[in-house]
Design a protein around this nucleic acid. Sequence first.
RNA 1: GGCGGCGUAGCCAAGUGGCUAAGGCGGAGGUCUGCAAAACCUCUAUUCGGCGGUUCGAAUCCGCCCGCCGCCUCCA
Length: 467
Amino acid sequence: MSQLKLTNTLGGNVEPFEPLEEGHVRMYTCGLTVYNRGHIGNFRTYVSQDVLRRYLKYKGYRVTQVTNFTDVDDKTIAGARKAGIPLREYTQQYIDNFFEDCAALNIEKSEYYPRATDQEYLDAMVALVQKLEERGHTYESDGSIYFKVDSFPDYGKLSRIDVAGMKAGVRVDADEYTKENARDFVLWKAPKDGEDSWDTAIGPGRPGWHLECSAMGMKILGETFDLHAGGVDLVFPHHENEIAQSEGATGKPFVRHWMHTEFLIVEGEKMSKSKGNQFNVPDLIAENYSPMAIRYLLLSVYYRQQLNFTREGLEQAATAIRRVDDFLDRLGEVTREGDAFPETAQAVKAAVERFETALDDDLNTSAALAALFDLVKGGNTALSSSTMTKGDAEGFKGAVERMNTVFGVFGQGKKMTLDDEVEKLIQERKEARARRDFARADEIRDELDARGIVLEDTPTGTRWKQK
RNA sequence: GGCGGCGUAGCCAAGUGGCUAAGGCGGAGGUCUGCAAAACCUCUAUUCGGCGGUUCGAAUCCGCCCGCCGCCUCCA
């Protein structure tokens, strides 16, 4: 199998992806700040990470993935206070929501889901700050501990931000903490009255946003790990600061490969609360869109390209899924005995190779889907000319299922079981058609349609499916 | 102001120097069907935002212009 290549934000080039430890990938996905239910934009990143994770497994790698929760920051603290409940309890509901939405979107579980306020990770953060103190990267001001950006010469290497070109004097420190340099960032925040804080060896307070990912990532995955991902907006300052903290403390490379997913826009406009277009998964399900259509739409566009998320797109996605699902159903109905034709084996092999070539090329999911649809087309042609044998059907089915271990979007519709009454109606319609009573036959078909059951008459009998 | 991305058919979207510009959705016609549905067949971009340039050759490289978006402040 050929080599997976991924764009590395660090350097900006498409590079071969090779894990540090042979056959084992250690990856970290920046997760949600849990003050709210994650929206569809958040989930684009998680779906793209899921595709990566699944493809790595497809290629035979063992994957250890960490997805964190930021459960302490200004917004979570404010939300918990407003709700009048403890922080942990407040954030837990959004963590639960996250898992519900991941399940709906068929996103595989990560191996670790650390929370910033877990004691073991707070300890790791404190230890990290102490290490940075020893190495002279910090200073204290008003009880807070800051990272001194000037002490880390590589600062800016990820985002390629030209420090001199930054708009000077515009930055306002929202937290009203005092910094020596506007670019310095807080590692440990001094306690403010009423806010959650922890008594630690570096003083009382709470972790700064950037600190947690460095500490949790290195604690679970090691001081240098393979891949770190998130949305493009995290490149600066979040990931830049993570590099400074981590490499400042260890003197070793923190992450070998940085991967960032582009934003999505909604109906041609950027997503924002004020526009009311910040959809989340349950909103869309409530509008009767299937979770698989959402997943399909999110993964059908190359992850480094902005994606225009529209209702029309969801409908198109649902139709595209149905095409593949119907194909799988029809393959199951092939009755002709026999082994696969060499042409079939050839076509299947070529499609799988095309699929792999596409994904190896920086996860080009659009091209990978095209390979799948071409295979479906070929299979349908064989089906319609009744030349397909059971062996052929197995070949096609195997290939689609293999590709679907990565897409995770086909064959997910639950086939409902027919109740007795429905079965009786189908039988009655069969008899009506036999005596050419088409008025009654159509009446039954309409009635079942109203119940969400679609009938299709084929030469071998009537097939039904859920609408 | 600094940095970066994008603009391909009615819609979504691959392709980044050279075979007939993938694929999906939609549309038109046809086959099949009692009629449908599904599926299949044919058609649906002589052209890739615009204008110049480089080249034997450009959607692909360069310049300028127009439009959209992102980062520089919390943000997937």
